[in-house]
Design a protein around this nucleic acid. Structure first.
Lengths: 218, 218
DNA sequence: TTTTATTTTTAACCACTGTTAAAATTAAGA
DNA sequence: TCTTAATTTTAACAGTGGTTAAAAATAAAA
């Protein structure tokens, strides 16, 4: 149930309504399963479901979703910091481990990790009262060449892509300078940690940054 | 299912047959629930169930039980060593966390803990191939006065009793000398860590030790 | 506008794990 | 030994979460 709410939250960015076939696909269940759960959530007042149109989180449902996401991201941090997992392998592992985490454990992990603000991929960890902090970051693809800044998140699910990005230092917190961008969704040249890297459009589109505009503004 | 098998293992010490009402009580479910599960386990060839008599683990069932106990005890170790829980509060917490632990996580925890041999209460951790190591210990109550040795386990479930015993240094690994034992299940005087402690029969009966007989044997 | 295709929902089913109430069996007492 | 009490099992039901196959609604194409 929390899984469904969290998934609706994730899918509901921008879009006003989330199709429950989409939910079914993401959670790897049949669409009737999603339909039934969505109706139950509607009856509980957690979401609003308009038949043949889609589903939308209500306030209470969003809160539950955010607390589930909080737990997930804390567990990811824990897996990376304490259990020596790589950032590319923690997503599925966290899904598994999360089932066994209760509030006491969550609080303990939070404390031992030093109250982390983000998960290993840079996504902010919702607060304990169910609020998603804003990062004020933006996609790398809207950043003008010449900008400098910091990688804020890497929104990528594929393990091998994540692993590759990690290996070239393309991780949240890394400083970068965008040297150039080829037209027509071509590759980008980035300075990362004194090394220059060229990355394709596909990888680039998952990167979000906090950056200042180029120095030459006058 | 694993819970049931593990519980049958625990209850089946000494007794040839375990009553499935006892199982129901321990697992906090109704007896029909236990009856049905026991029959399923019987059909799967994991246990032998004789109606109105009881249930007994078969080889394969015992192995599953031991692997579940292994995971439980590893998780307890982990909670104490890494998550700063007290040995008195880990049992229930481990039950919860265990649900989310898969083989990869179990192996990782095992490695990070340095392949521990026992849980925080001193019980041996079954090996990865499902064998329960023998400790060669015995109950404190059969040990003659004057004996010295080491506490091997504290088989107590109550949190407050465990906490108290921890506070007086009555923990697995501690050296002790049994100074005297009052008759008729009276209190025992123990030297622990240079301090003398007097403990009642109730506490004493949960303590197991590895000890040598008194020095004066000639 | 009517037909066709796609999406979404309903219907009917299965498996698991729990429940309470009643029946069957075993154990204990008169 | 017979009756009564306790234990154990069976029966019937509930809730969750999954499935496939068919029906309904919407979107797209002729």
């Amino acid at each position: 149930m929390r899984d469904y709410l969290a998934e609706i939250y994730r899918l509901g960015h921008g879009k006003a309504w989330v199709s429950n076939t989409a939910i079914a696909d993401e959670l790897d269940v049949s669409s009737p399963a999603a339909v039934r759960m969505v109706r139950r959530l509607d009856e509980l007042g957690l979401v609003e479901h308009v038949p043949y149109q889609g589903v939308k989180l209500l306030k209470t449902g969003e809160k539950v979703a955010l607390l589930s996401i909080r737990r997930h991201r804390l567990v990811e941090r824990f897996l990376v910091n304490q259990l020596q997992f790589g950032w590319h392998e923690v997503h599925d592992q966290a899904d598994s481990l999360q089932k066994g985490i209760n509030q006491i454990l969550e609080d303990r992990i939070d404390m031992l990790m030093g109250y982390p603000k983000t998960c290993p991929h840079g996504d902010p960890i919702p607060t304990k009262d169910g609020v998603m902090p804003l990062l004020g970051d933006k996609p790398l693809k809207v950043v003008p060449p010449g900008s400098r800044g910091k990688i804020s998140r890497v929104r990528e699910r594929h393990e091998d892509k994540l692993q590759y990005m990690g290996s070239i230092g393309l991780v949240p917190g890394a400083k970068f300078e965008l040297i150039s961008r080829a037209p027509f969704d071509g590759p980008l040249r980035l300075k990362l940690d004194r090394n220059e890297q060229v990355i394709g459009h596909e990888l680039a589109s998952s990167i979000w940054v906090i950056s200042k505009p180029p120095i030459a503004k006058e």
